[in-house]
Amino acid sequence: MEYYLDIWGEMCPIPIIKSQRQLKVMAIGDILVLETEHSCTARGLVVWAQKQGYPISESEVAAGIWRLTITKVHD
């Protein structure tokens, strides 16, 4: 399953809190997609996911907009 979480315009660290809650209700193997225009949020999510051991890919889809894809590989 692929989930999309709306974090547009939200300041840090609300996106990370929302992702933590969302990942909890997802099954292993599910993918979470997030989009943000906040540079610090994108960076914070990448550092956080790496620490949790979730694979994360970051891409710039437009000037100053980041799309993040997190795969839930464990609980």
Binding site: W8, G9, E10, M11, E37, H38, S39, E60, A63, G64
Partner: peptide
Amino acid sequence: SQWRFRPLRQRKF
């Protein structure tokens, strides 16, 4: 190439 105007999207913020 990351500059953009980032408007306020929710009133609470």
